[in-house]
Structure formats: C-alpha cells, structure tokens
Write a protein that binds this DNA or RNA. Sequence first.
DNA 1: TAGATTGTTAATCGATTAACAATC
DNA 2: TAGATTGTTAATCGATTAACAATC
Lengths: 217, 217
Amino acid sequence: MKKKISLRVIRRISFYYEALLKLNLPETNYISSKKLEEVTGVSCNQVRQDFFYLGISIGKQKKGYLVKKLFRELRRILSIDHGARVIIIGAGRIGQALSNYKLFKDRNITVTALFDIKPGLVGTEIGKPGQKKPILHVDQLDAYLNENPDIHIALLTVPEEAAQETLDRLIAHGIKGVVNFAPKILKVPRESKDVQLINDCIGTSLYKIVYQLYNKK
Amino acid sequence: MKKKISLRVIRRISFYYEALLKLNLPETNYISSKKLEEVTGVSCNQVRQDFFYLGISIGKQKKGYLVKKLFRELRRILSIDHGARVIIIGAGRIGQALSNYKLFKDRNITVTALFDIKPGLVGTEIGKPGQKKPILHVDQLDAYLNENPDIHIALLTVPEEAAQETLDRLIAHGIKGVVNFAPKILKVPRESKDVQLINDCIGTSLYKIVYQLYNKK
DNA sequence: TAGATTGTTAATCGATTAACAATC
DNA sequence: TAGATTGTTAATCGATTAACAATC
C-alpha cells in the first residue's frame, strides 16, 4: 500500500529542488532546513517534516543536508530522470507559452508536439531552431500516440467549451495523466479511475485578491 | 474582526457562480445543493457548509436556493459588481492570453493595459477591435496609476528572473494586490504587509502527475 | 402526511506547527 | 565542550464529511 502524497507536498518538494538549482552550490556543501526556509519561504519545521514523511533522512546534525545527496533524493521523488515526454492539446497562447516553458526544461520535461484544429496553426511548427515542435491536427492524435508509446501525459489548453470533450477523447486514446488549464473543473469518467487529472485552472486565484481588496474593514 | 475566508472557499464560490452562469436557469427556479454537487463536483454537504460559513441562509427546505437570490449573494461575495480593473505586467504569451481571458469577462474584471519593456511590444495594442488594450513601457507605470487611481491589482507574467524585482516595484507604486504567475514563489517585503499576494505558479501541478505516473506500484 | 432539503453541529480527517531528545 | 541542527513525536490548527433535527 503506497503512502499518499498530496499535491502540497510535491509542490514544496519542487520548491526545494528549484531553490537548490538556483543556489548552484558545490555538491559537497551542506544546506540546512533553516537555509531552505530562507530561500523557499517554507518553514524549517515543514521542510524536515516533509523529508521525514518522504523517508529522506540524510541530514547531518549541525550541518544539514549534503547538496549532492539532497539533489539525488529530490530528483528521485520528482521523477526528473524519467524525462517525461508530454503533449499539449490546444496551441493557443497558453499552449504555446507552455511549449517553451523554462520550468519544464529545468525538470527534464519535454513537450514533443502540440495539437489543435485551427487550419492556420495545424501543419506549422513553433519554438526556437533546434527545438521546433510540430502543431498537428487533433485527428492525428491516435496515430501519434501509437508512434510514441512513451507519452502518457497531456496538458489541456483548449477553450473551456471544448475542454471536457477533449479530455474524454484523450482518455479514449490512452492518456494516463492530464493537467487541465482551462478555467473549468473537469471530471474523469467513472470507468477511467486510473487516469490522473489535475484541474489547474489559470487565473481563478484572482478572486481571492478581488475578495480581499473589496472586503477590507 | 473579519472572518478569514480561505482561497479554497472563494474558489468553490466561484465554481458555484460559474455553474449558475452556465446552467442559465430562469431566475425564479430553485437549485438544490444536490444539483450543485452534480454540476460542480463539490459535495452537497460542502456546498451547504460554505453557504453557512459565509452567512448565506436563503434556502427553502424541499426546494433549494432561489436562483435569483443565490446569484445576488455569490456576486456580492465575489465582489463582481465592483468591476475590478487590473493591469498586466509582462505582455508575453501568458500576459496576452490573460488580457483576453473569458473568465475575467464573466467576472466583470477588466484588463485596462499591459506593461512590458520589449521595444517591439511597447507602443502597440492588442485585443479585438473595440477592446484594444495598450502595451505601455514599465517606466510609464507610475504615471498610469496616477491617472487611474481605481487600479489596485496587477497580474504578474514577467519572466521568473524579473519577478521579485517587478513585484517590489509594483508595491512601491502603490499596487495592493498581485497575482504572480511566474513559477517562482515571491514574497512581500515585511514593511508592506497590507499587500495581498497570491503565487499562482503556472504548471507546477504537473509534478504531481509526473510523480503519480512514475510511482505506481 | 411523507419526503426532501435545509441549516447547523459534531466527528473526522489531514496538514502544519511546535517541541525536544539525540548527537555531531 | 557548547551550540546547532537533525529526526521524530505530539499538539494544534483548519478543512471536510457526516449526521440529523427542523420544516416546508
């Protein structure tokens, strides 16, 4: 029975990893939970709690965590060395932005292709020379996934109205993980419970700001 | 002393609002918490709990909530009738996508202008005819905010490297609420505790999917 | 009336924070 | 040694779920 790891934990783990990337310390240095608090904003107690929960017990009292070892553990947890390959459905502005996302490069995630239905887009390529990604027609999805059996993840950036329908189609084609960026909560059909879906609806957090700003006493 | 309302509650409230928009029921209809569960995926218990917590007690036993009244309450909580006006800092693909975001229109949020530093962008306009928004230079920010004293919210879509610096600058110019979309946790300086900041880092949830997919037993 | 649905309280669950003995 | 920092447990906090009396 696997321990369940919440999105919150994974998100913090990714903060630690990014902070480590950015600090660019020699591999033989040590970094303490206190220092990690400083650079990530996550309390040192939370840092240690996370490490404990995930079974990372590599710290040395008085010193902290060996950068080399910590890197290795974080990479393992985030499955960075798997080098996940993903596709993007919807080649609008958000899809295009994601196709070139620096964050993904740092995590060894490769966008291999985009899919759309717009005649002006389909058949073109985007990205810098040497990293060009084709924009294919959604009808080519099935063939593409057959040719690329290592692709299990899709990022969904189609318009809200097409989102649920497209998700169903992706699942029918065997996709196992989907991140939905449209501002609409999607649901995985009952019969496909093994499919992972995250609703990462862009911009919805704006309403907290609006709420707070207009409800000050 | 104001009750603290978490982002989660506000997000769910926005789901209810959107569901209501989409269902487009006659104002004299009733909608039950059970029906809201069906269309939003939020359990009926949670729906009633939220309404109770927010002081919305307008239900009728056996019927549910009068659509007209419920709309009014949700709009009030989300401050939709305030018609918030916001600016976007960073006119790249994500900034441009947000400037034309359907979700914002539904919520009566208006993007009035974008800011950037790129010579090719500054001075141009984007958006459909009749809704064109200027792209101004970041140096014009101060003057712009003086001319538009009703603008208190900025959406931050600059590259990661420039994010913290730009946030500090926005705060110096009097901005009171910021949503950060860059995949980097930003912090509000200690001396500006009244500024609301939400780190809505796009794409970071992808790591949960990757994690889950590569850690199946 | 019987059935459905609310408002509200209590129980449960999960996540964060605090504390501290162990020890390098 | 004294001080710092870990790993781990316990306490706290907050959010969700369950239950049910009230009542239309």
